[in-house]
Amino acid sequence: MILEVRDLYTAYGLSQVLFGVSLSIGQGEVVSVLGRNGVGKTTTLRSIMGLARPSAGSIRWKGRETVGLAPYEISRLGIGLVPEERRIFADLTVWENLDVARRPAERGEGWTVERVSDLFPALRDLRNRRGGYLSGGEQQMLTIARTLMGNPDLLLLDEPSEGLAPIVVEQLKEQMLRLRGEGIAILLCEQRIQFSLGLSSRAYILEKGRVCYQGTLEELEANEEIGRTYLAV
């Protein structure tokens, strides 16, 4: 396991959001964290990234404890977050957004503007467009591409399909499959199961800040009861 999260408790001020979340991811594995609105998916990712400080629990990345490290340090250790709100630098062009996030790979050839444009061909024609003028789908591709520029070994993807047209979602899924083929591990948060099907092997279901179910996607798909109770449709 390259990432092991154990008994994570995170609160925003006085409101406790995570009540002992545990999960793990192996090298190159794609794992889903599913759950409805407000169950704590984003908070889990923010805790892993160092953006929210857990009050208890541990996060071990490649065997090393990362609780207490700053986001930039965690990023440099090889974890990349793709935030739900996408957070493109609106006044910077597409190319500038990518350039700002560039960090040489520790080994291998690493991602370049050229290579992320092969993965997301739409970005090539938009190089000089400002981030603020992109469509939702284009922004989603750019925010993933931008995080890839830092050569992470693990990608934390927060609801990438949110707000996108079905055809764009299909295309995005194709691209994520290609990314999986590159051997990069992905922790994927979604409210619905559809995007995860065929992409991830295992899933955790969150409910009110706790993991209430875990299993393979096949098991989950077969178990309609669980889907109805805990997931959005």
Binding site: M49, P71, F89, L92
Partner: peptide
């Protein structure tokens, strides 16, 4: 534009 995001991308 977005200091927090820049940190997430590895900038000190």
């Amino acid at each position: 534009l977005d200091r927090e995001m820049l940190g997430v991308l590895g900038v000190h």
